[in-house]
Design a protein around this nucleic acid. Structure first.
Length: 204
DNA sequence: TAAAGGATTTTCT
DNA sequence: GAAAATCCTTTAC
């Protein structure tokens, strides 16, 4: 399978977020290779977007967001979990897509080992922290690296059909004006079980 | 099923 | 010192 190239990520962030649905995220090589089909993403648009880490400007933490399209922005959340993003748009424009959920397609045994708390299959990769744990993505190992290299890749796969994609408005899940746009595959069981998503699915 | 609280560390006020 | 692009467990209805 073919990895996505930098040009894929050098486009408006919302476009990249939508187009990543159905693509294959891959970690490891040989016996440790794991693959999963991306089913949920979020768009963080830039300094003007209060939901985006780059809203605070250029700091040590946000430096990678200003980097080349196609880099991995990996950060620690709540002191415990890693979250993985793909940097979008040209160098100097700080924006990224958070990969929130995926559907395991290869290396599932290893995912079960890494996700000790998981009881059901959907617990493996339904959420940004869970996904990183299942795939073995960490800041020390992967932050600032390219998504197009052995051991850390996003492959072309087959993009999700347009009719199967749901896009939430920035205002629509919660009242917060700084809520990000969320993109996901309709009715996919791996779409994050986060309360706001469930609420949105019920009321639409 | 839902709501609440704890874990744990970095970042910024 | 508080909040954070989260997850897990416990407790309550």
């Amino acid at each position: 399978m073919v990895p996505l190239r930098a040009a894929f990520f050098d486009r408006p962030t919302e476009r990249v977020a939508r187009d990543l649905l159905g693509r294959i995220i891959e970690t490891g090589t040989g016996a440790t290779r794991c693959r999963a089909r991306i089913v949920e993403t979020e768009a963080y648009l830039g300094e003007h977007d209060l939901a985006c880490h780059a809203a605070v400007g250029r700091t040590a933490r946000t430096e990678v967001l200003y980097g080349r399209p196609g880099l991995a922005y990996v950060y620690l959340i709540y002191g415990m979990y890693w979250c993985a993003n793909a940097v979008t748009r040209r160098e100097g424009l700080p924006s990224a897509v958070l990969i929130r959920a995926a559907e395991p397609v290869e290396g599932v045994d290893l995912m079960w080992k890494r996700r000790r708390a998981a009881r059901r299959l959907v617990d493996l990769t339904s959420g940004p922290g869970r996904l990183c744990q299942a795939l073995g993505i960490t800041g020390p190992e992967h932050h600032g690296k390219s998504w197009n290299q052995p051991g850390l890749r996003i492959l072309e796969g087959r993009p999700a059909a347009r009719g199967s994609i749901v896009v939430t408005p920035r205002i629509g899940i919660s009242e917060a004006a700084d809520w990000p746009m969320r993109f996901f595959v309709r009715d996919n069981p791996f779409v994050s079980a986060q309360a706001e998503t469930r609420k949105f699915l019920r009321t639409r």
